[in-house]
Design a protein around this nucleic acid. Structure first.
Lengths: 109, 109
DNA sequence: AAGTTATATAACCATTAAGTTATATATTAA
DNA sequence: TTAATATATAACTTAATGGTTATATAACTT
């Protein structure tokens, strides 16, 4: 099985995170996406190509438009792997933190 | 409240991820850490300084040694924020994926 | 006091990253 | 067929990254 896209790289840039976030809600054309940013069309194009190459985003052509959508399966799997890797470093801490937050909430009620 | 360290940046580099992983298990001196890698001491020093600046790692001086440990609280909080941000994009997908995996396990038993 | 070990710092280098502007190409609309 | 729109690509700039080597400083060991 081919090792999944580099999610760490994908998430490292805020533009890419915002694109992923947009696509998680809906399919968008490239020009739609461009409108959501203050940067140029070629800049967005580059980031889309990166996300495409990593496999997190799917492109489909229709006329002069390119529709982009989140490749949820690929992204979800990479995400899970990341959680497994990073979350493991924090296992007990997260349990503790959860208790702490929960108790805090109780106190606040 | 000061916004938490940039976990996306911290995780973007494999050397930093490995350092964090080491420190999640135990405190280490810098030279201990250096031994775990094939790169130079100054290179490790740099990465440690980045992790320190982001607040994910704590340094304590003792003689000529520097002891490094994971700042678990800071890291856990940043991690949780990341999970909230990124996980939200995948909510339903993750539920589906879980069902899929669970059913698969059942079938395999 | 001299040598060794741990860490820090400076100067440097190559690569990558993330954007820009200008322009080309493809498709649709008038 | 001309104009407008959507996307792609090329060439460039600037800055950040992640390493290197050489050397300095600090602390311990003999």
């Amino acid at each position: 099985m081919r090792t999944s896209g580099n999610i760490y790289r994908a998430l490292a840039d805020p533009t890419r995170r915002k694109i992923l976030n947009l696509l998680s809600k809906d399919e968008h054309t490239q020009s739609d996406i461009v409108k959501e940013f203050d940067i140029s069309q070629p800049a967005i194009n580059k980031q889309l190509n990166i996300l495409k190459k990593e496999g997190f985003v799917h492109e489909s052509k229709s006329g002069r438009y390119r529709f982009y959508s989140l490749n949820t399966k690929v992204f979800a799997v990479a995400y899970q792997q990341m959680i497994d890797e990073i979350g493991a470093m924090l296992d007990q801490t997260l349990v503790d933190l959860k208790h702490y937050v929960e108790n805090k909430e109780e106190d606040d009620d």
